[in-house]
């Protein structure tokens, strides 16, 4: 049991002593997850809005497809992105394999179905009286769309938090597309896997604590947003 207690003790030393290797993994994680959640939101929010707001042929199939993508395994996404970005792949010339943008692309694909599905559900669940209220207050078509998006803002924030929670804690994409390169593409999750494999528990525990803090912060903000979204 001593190695666990020592691991925790050493983890605090690494965190509060500003260990560069530990903080490199933390900063890489924050950088890549910020880029990937931004891509997911920029592409996913309008698509989710369109999917939820409009009725069209094939909508049901599209909803089922997006919902199915929610359970897409991260290693499979990693495999596909790896295949596309590898030298032999169609996007190989872009040189994105084993880079932060490469991981961000894979993680954005992971977050995208979450944002689209949650946004579509939120728009579908908007009060039916909203549109008539906007019409009767004199809103034009574009003003109705803008106000409807703003009315769904808490649900969008909820979608962002849920997608971020999944992105920041994934390992398959970061490992396969990023390659777990020290000082470069090593993230919190890949570092934990590597260090634990090597028997270096302290860095694993230190990074695990940071990941837990991020997860708690995401969940804490989600509960606040959920309360507001339901009002």
């Amino acid at each position: 049991m001593d190695f666990i207690a020592n691991g925790f003790l050493h983890a605090f030393v690494l965190l509060f002593g500003g260990d560069p290797e530990t903080y490199s993994a933390i900063f890489t994680t924050l950088a890549v997850s910020t880029v990937s959640i931004s891509i997911s939101l920029i592409i996913g929010a309008p698509l989710g809005f369109l999917l939820g707001y409009h009725n069209f042929r094939g909508k049901k199939f599209l909803r089922t497809f997006v919902d199915s993508m929610l359970s897409f395994p991260t290693v499979v996404i990693g495999l596909l992105v790896y295949a596309f970005l590898s030298r032999r792949g169609p996007l190989g010339e872009m040189g994105l394999l084993f880079t932060i943008p490469g991981i961000a692309i894979g993680q954005a694909l992971l977050g995208l179905p979450i944002v689209i599905a949650m946004m579509a559900t939120a728009v579908e669940a908007l009060d039916q009286r909203l549109k008539n209220t906007l019409l009767t207050l004199g809103a034009a078509h574009s003003q109705i769309l803008r106000t409807t998006l703003w009315e769904a803002r808490y649900s969008l924030a909820l979608a962002a938090a849920a997608a971020y929670g999944r992105i920041v804690s994934e390992i398959g994409i970061s490992m396969m597309v990023g390659g777990n390169i020290k000082w470069h593409t090593r993230t919190i999750t890949t570092a934990i896997a590597l260090e634990t494999g090597k028997g270096e528990f302290s860095m694993g525990i230190a990074l695990g604590m940071v990941l837990m803090i991020i997860a708690f912060a995401v969940n804490f903000s989600m509960s606040g947003i959920k309360k507001r979204a339901g009002q």
């Binding site: 009060d127 009286r129 209220t133 703003w150 009315e151």
Partner: peptide, 11 residues
Amino acid sequence: SLLTQEPYLLK
């Protein structure tokens, strides 16, 4: 402008 029985207020 119409005021309905159960009006909707914007968030």
